[in-house]
């Protein structure tokens, strides 16, 4: 019998032992970010947060979504889930943010460098297909229980679409435009920032949307390691067989999902329309 598990375990233990100062530092950093965002949402009165999000949704995605946002968030507040919803929202935003600032540059690299691309592809497949629960174990070993391991597991699960769609977007830039840009003496950096990224933007924004939605799908999973938020409510519903509780938490997640999806999608759509003109 081959005991792959044993080697992985040894490797994770070795990492935990030797890099604990590093993990502590990361933990402190991520904690500050999550608490900072959460602090902002809880510092503002709930109606201000609702108003701000509703206005954003209205400006980006039209008045319909604006109304849905206002009503949905009010419903959450009335159900008494305002605090866990804000917790979940801040977890998602921080996770997605970190996933994007890592994923987009990796995607650019993969588009530029064939070797990097062909190494990354199977790794991304692995990250996406491995059952998300599995990430919880090393996450806990590295960061203990709480929000930070939740963010860690969420990042691993949610980053692949950002990488993939960035690579796709850049490789879809028409060859004649790239060639023309090079023929005018563009440096690789000018090519990237003046041509490739602007032209790939709609696709990259689709990746941003995907990353955020996948972060949201990790809410319940990360609640298993005490990340808190709406996931905890759903989890309680499952473990204690409280159907009502489970559905209430679930509905709040769905409302959050609709709002986040429509707002982030609107960015990609606006750009595409302008380009297609």
């Amino acid at each position: 019998m081959i005991k792959i598990g044993k080697y992985i375990e040894q490797f994770i233990n070795w990492l935990t032992h030797n890099f604990s100062p590093f993990f502590k530092m990361v933990k402190a950093g991520v904690e500050t970010m999550v608490d900072g965002v959460l602090g902002l949402f809880t510092f503002l009165p709930f109606y201000v947060v609702i108003a701000l999000l509703a206005i954003l949704a209205w400006r980006r995605a039209g008045w319909g979504i604006g109304v849905v946002t206002a009503l949905g968030l009010t419903l959450i507040y009335m159900m008494g889930y305002w605090a866990p919803t804000m917790e979940t929202l801040s977890l998602i935003l921080v996770s997605a943010f970190i996933a994007l600032i890592m994923g987009i540059p990796l995607g650019i690299w993969a588009a530029r460098n064939k070797t990097a691309g062909s190494i990354m592809r199977p790794l991304l497949d692995f990250m996406q297909t491995m059952p998300a629960f599995v990430y919880l174990i090393p996450a806990v070993l590295f960061f203990g229980l709480g929000k930070v391991p939740g963010v860690f597991a969420t990042i691993i699960f949610a980053m692949p679409p950002a990488v993939r769609l960035t690579t796709l977007g850049i490789s879809q830039v028409p060859e004649d435009i790239v060639e023309a840009t090079r023929s005018f003496g563009a440096t690789p950096r000018q090519l990237l920032f003046k041509v490739e990224l602007p032209l790939a933007l709609p696709t990259i924004l689709a990746g941003v949307n995907q990353t955020i939605m996948m972060s949201l799908s990790m809410v319940v999973v990360s609640a298993m390691i005490a990340a808190g938020g709406l996931g905890e409510i759903v989890l309680k519903g499952i473990t204690q067989l409280k159907i009502g509780l489970g559905f209430e938490g679930g509905i709040a997640v769905v409302i959050l999902a609709i709002i986040l999806d429509r707002i982030t999608q609107s960015f990609g759509k606006k750009k595409q329309k302008k380009n297609a003109k």
């Binding site: 004649d176 435009i177 023309a180 840009t181 023929s183 003496g185 041509v195 602007p198």
Partner: peptide
């Protein structure tokens, strides 16, 4: 130096135009 030559001395026009759509 090649970039300099492309910027100052040799310019190119393409069959498919190669214009920036945005």
């Amino acid at each position: 130096d090649l970039q300099k030559v492309r910027r100052k001395e040799i310019a190119m026009v393409f069959q498919k135009f190669g214009l920036l759509p945005h």
